[in-house]
Simulated assay, not measured.
Amino acid sequence: MSKTTPGTLMLSKLGIAFDLHPYDYDPDAPRVGLQAAEALGIDAAQTFKTLMAEVDGKPVCVVVPSDCEVSMKKMAAAFHGKSGHMMKVPDAERLTGYKVGGISPFGQRKKTPTAIDETAQLFDTIYINAGQRGLLLSITPDDAARALEAPFVDLTA
Rank of each mutant, 00 (worst) to 15 (best):
T8H: 01
L11I: 11
L11A: 02
S12L: 12
A17R: 14
A17F: 09
D19K: 15
H21K: 00
P22K: 01
P22T: 00
D24Q: 12
D24W: 01
D26K: 09
D26I: 03
D26Y: 06
P30E: 10
P30Q: 14
P30H: 10
P30F: 08
R31D: 08
V32A: 11
G33K: 09
L34R: 13
L34G: 10
E38M: 10
E38R: 13
L40M: 00
G41I: 07
I42S: 13
I42M: 12
I42F: 14
D43S: 06
A45E: 15
A45M: 05
T47R: 03
T47P: 07
T47I: 02
F48A: 02
A53Q: 09
V55P: 10
V55Y: 11
D56C: 04
D56L: 11
K58E: 12
K58Y: 04
C61G: 05
V62G: 11
V63L: 10
V64L: 03
V64P: 09
S66H: 05
C68L: 09
E69Q: 11
V70G: 03
V70K: 11
V70M: 14
S71C: 08
S71T: 04
M72Q: 14
M72F: 15
K73Q: 14
K74P: 05
A76L: 03
A78H: 08
F79T: 07
G81P: 01
G81L: 00
G81W: 01
G81A: 04
M86Y: 11
M86I: 08
K88L: 09
P90H: 09
A92M: 02
E93M: 07
R94S: 12
L95F: 02
K99H: 13
V100M: 12
G101N: 00
G102C: 13
S104M: 11
F106V: 12
F106P: 13
F106K: 03
G107K: 12
G107L: 02
Q108C: 10
R109A: 15
K110R: 13
K111G: 09
P113S: 02
A115E: 04
D117R: 04
D117V: 13
E118A: 13
T119I: 10
A120E: 09
Q121H: 01
Q121A: 10
Q121L: 14
F123E: 05
D124C: 11
I126L: 08
Y127F: 15
N129I: 05
G131Y: 03
Q132H: 13
L135D: 04
L135V: 06
L135A: 07
L136K: 11
L137R: 01
L137N: 05
I139A: 00
T140W: 07
P141M: 05
D143S: 13
